[in-house]
């Protein structure tokens, strides 16, 4: 079973501006190293630049419309994501609970696997 872990944070400034970002990165690196050495990473994913860098394309009556800013007008946004391999939701929760940056929230979403649905 594959799950996406989405790391959600208030990121007006982005991660790098935080005074302790060196320590945080170190512990996050350790998190990924541990996961990787246990064969739990299906796709390492990516860290995203802050929401201030976002551009959104949407469609209005069939015509593309480009706007500045993120799609969701909220203070919190997805700062990064990774895709893990876990037996079931409880294992995914256990992995998410080891995420070291506690000012984040981690949203867990199962990945649609088209192959298994007979498509």
């Amino acid at each position: 079973m594959k799950y996406a872990l989405m790391f959600i944070r208030e990121d007006e400034e982005g991660f790098l501006s935080r005074p302790d970002h060196g320590d945080v990165y170190q512990s996050i690196n350790r998190f990924f190293m541990d996961l990787g050495s246990n064969g739990k990473i299906a796709n390492p994913g990516a860290e995203l630049q802050p929401m201030t860098t976002a551009t959104t394309v949407r469609w209005a009556e069939g015509k593309p419309l480009v706007t500045d800013g993120p799609f969701m007008e909220t203070k919190e946004g997805i700062g990064g994501f990774t895709i893990i391999e876990a037996e079931d939701l409880d294992e995914a929760i256990a992995i998410a609970q080891r995420w070291p940056a506690h000012d984040h929230a981690v949203e867990i979403r199962p990945i649609v696997e088209h192959g298994e649905m007979g498509m």
Partner: peptide
């Protein structure tokens, strides 16, 4: 979401 069918482990 593959919620498991089991009694949770001691930690959980």
């Amino acid at each position: 979401a593959h919620i498991p069918y089991r009694v949770p482990n001691a930690e959980m």
